[in-house]
Design a binder for these strands. Structure first.
Length: 153
DNA sequence: GCCAACGTTGGC
DNA sequence: GCCAACGTTGGC
């Protein structure tokens, strides 16, 4: 079992959208970064995910989700009218993948980036999402980071 | 294979 | 809205 952090802008799709979705599950499409894609391909059903709110008033972890379906081709890459259309991707060798994630629980309040940073010199010193300049939308979380953060909530 | 230009992310 | 950081593209 592995642990991950996935960023989403709540103005586009936040944790409340996930809570309202059918079966509290959504397809995580639109990823167009190779490293993030590779991480999605490593995800296994049952892996746990911190659902992170970015580009908003209080950036931070809003709750926990789980991988419900492992990587499969993202159909938006083949839709020429879609923002995420990729003319270079071939049907027999899709370039972009997506996974489905299901809500596990929403935190009572967002565990803010500020709060996480308080531990940036300690238990969370290697946490990828806290590293300077990090923009990756999907990052791995270690088991010890996961449990430490769960205990902060 | 280098690297400048460009686009995007995301905190502030 | 600003801008630092970084990924991608494309000319050479």
């Amino acid at each position: 079992m592995n642990y991950w952090l996935m960023k989403s802008e709540p103005s586009v799709f936040g944790i409340d959208n996930l809570a309202r979705a059918k079966n509290s599950t959504t397809g995580w499409d639109g990823v167009r970064n190779f490293q993030a894609r590779n991480y999605m391909r490593e995800m296994r059903k049952g892996d746990l995910v911190f659902f992170y709110h970015s580009s908003c008033e209080v950036p931070g972890i809003a709750g926990v989700a789980t991988v419900q379906r492992e990587a499969y081709p993202d159909p938006t890459q083949f839709d020429s009218k879609h923002d995420h259309y990729d003319a270079a991707s071939k049907a027999d060798e899709p370039r972009w993948s997506m996974v489905d994630v299901k809500l596990v629980r929403k935190f009572d309040e967002v565990l803010s980036l500020d709060e996480l940073r308080k531990h940036a010199a300690g238990k969370l010193k290697d946490m990828v999402v806290l590293k300077r300049g990090n923009r990756l939308s999907i990052t791995p979380v270690t088991k010890s980071e996961w449990h430490f953060i769960e205990a902060l909530v």
